[in-house]
């Protein structure tokens, strides 16, 4: 057990997991917000694009997206982000995690938008705010507050889903390293426990924080 801890960089692997989580979470929130605005916009074409995105991405397995980014986009089409193979795989992993979870962020936000009474949008328009201003000033702030709890669940899922990046990242992140340790040292309950604990440490506080936040920031009507 001590040998495993000494010979393998478990903390380093979790550090990569954290990086993947933070970077792709930011990306997912940005893309997801844009897609959510598309889905509630008054322009029909944008609504269609938004719903196509959600339905296409949400129903594609993440492993498939991961593999196709490297095999399809990078190797076949030559869309390379970095000349260094590991950096290339790292950034493709971030992009795919962001793109995939953006679909869930969008749906969480849209459910948040749906909790807002229609009168809020009408009042915003009637004082002369444009669609963009109504979104920024009135609808999205309330949608985010109403969506904190489901957004928390999405972020927790994202953190655990970073393990899928092992498909293209190899042993750099935690799940890949776990597979390597199991391969070299044999399966042991202790090793599994260490990795499981690592994820609990990452996800549990996030769940508690978002639950508290959603209670504190809830819009009183």
């Amino acid at each position: 057990m001590v040998d495993i801890l000494r010979n393998y960089d478990i903390l380093g692997a979790f550090w990569v997991t954290i990086q993947l989580s933070v970077l792709s979470a930011v990306g997912a929130l940005v893309i997801g917000t844009v897609v959510a605005v598309f889905r509630v916009s008054p322009v029909g074409v944008l609504r269609v694009i938004g719903s196509l995105y959600v339905n296409l991405i949400r129903n594609t397995p993440l492993t498939l997206l991961m593999a196709s980014s490297i095999l399809g986009l990078s190797f076949v089409l030559g869309l390379s982000i970095s000349d260094q193979a590991t950096r290339n795989a790292y950034w493709w992993a971030v992009i795919m995690l962001a793109v995939y979870h953006a679909a869930f962020v969008c749906e969480a936000l849209r459910s948040g938008v749906n909790t807002i009474p229609a009168g809020q949008a009408e009042a915003a328009r009637s004082i002369g705010l444009t669609f963009g201003q109504s979104m920024r000033e009135v609808l999205l702030p309330q949608a985010f507050r109403g969506a904190i709890a489901p957004l928390g669940s999405t972020l927790i899922a994202l953190i655990k889903n970073t393990t899928v990046a092992a498909v293209i990242l190899g042993t750099a992140e935690s799940a890949g390293l776990l597979a390597q340790i199991t391969e070299n040292e044999g399966a042991s309950l202790g090793t599994f426990f260490i990795f499981a604990l690592g994820f609990v440490i990452l996800t549990l506080p996030l769940g508690i924080a978002t639950t508290n936040l959603s209670r504190r920031l809830a819009v009183k009507r």
Partner: peptide, 14 residues
């Protein structure tokens, strides 16, 4: 330029 007052007030809740 057109003020509007609603039955259900519709003040911005946040």
């Amino acid at each position: 330029d057109v003020g509007m007052v609603f039955q259900s007030f519709n003040l911005f809740a946040h």
